[in-house]
Design a protein around this nucleic acid. Structure first.
Lengths: 133, 133
DNA sequence: ACTTGACCTTCCTGTCACTGGAACCCCTAT
DNA sequence: ATAGGGGTTCCAGTGACAGGAAGGTCAAGT
């Protein structure tokens, strides 16, 4: 398989696949013309990576997950630890974003949004108005 | 005021304040020694920026908000439009993250996390298992 | 007068995970 | 012969800073 076909199968842009080779996540063979030749195992790896990335795992955790996936002697505890750590980070980000959303929502609600210049959003930003808890 | 004092007042790192000068968000005067001299108006601007950034507005939107803040003839509709657009983006991000959280949560829950190698997280990533709606 | 230490300056590099683009090579079909 | 649609490399840019090196400045203490 050439890179275009793998890109279609995995849904990853060819640029991204080249980048993943650059950083050592995959190591496709090369043909006589210099083209990358991807074997099914490479495509499976890339599909795994695409899914892990879509769930927001950072690259280095993807690398670790990939290594565990290929290690038949792994302990599932190691996998779980990585995923649980990621989950905690996601929940923190959601909490942070939710607090921000509430504040911005209140500001937007308070603003009439007409042609006049007085604006609670600007005064809120200037005065540091925060969502009451 | 020197940069350190403004940093303390605004809560922004001095590095960040220098960066904001670089990209033209503030233009403090300079003393004979080459030090930046911040006037109260500069500090107010930076406080405004710090709050807008804390609410997740990207720099360019902060620049626009700052310009509107200083424009006495603004229409509050222009401010509201920016904030509403930002709010929509936040809500999209929360929705995306929530879907991810649900999927990762389910994977973590399904994994025993012991010394054995079989792991629903890895099979889920390999097979593309998704949270059922 | 000298030194110490805190503060300030600029400049360069690195982050994260790509994305866009230039310039060029390869293969097949018309 | 040419046109197109692959592929290749390398360089630069993204957002919003952070880290660090190398050096100038200032006030206080000895």
């Amino acid at each position: 398989m050439n890179i275009g076909e793998v890109a279609e199968i995995t849904g990853l842009p060819a640029k991204t696949i080249r980048y993943y080779e650059d950083i050592g996540l995959v190591t496709p063979a090369r043909g006589d013309n210099g083209y990358r030749r991807f074997r099914p195992a490479d495509a499976h790896k890339l599909t795994f990576l695409a899914r892990a990335r879509a769930l927001g795992f950072p690259i280095e955790e993807c690398r670790d997950l990939l290594a565990l996936w290929e290690d038949q002697g792994r302990a599932s505890a190691d996998v779980r630890r990585i995923a649980a750590h990621h989950l905690a980070g996601i929940e923190r980000r959601i909490a942070d974003l939710s607090a921000i959303r509430d504040t911005v929502h209140d500001l937007v609600e308070a603003c009439r949004g007409d042609a006049r210049p007085d604006c609670p959003i600007l005064t809120g930003l200037a005065q540091g108005q925060q969502k009451a808890p």
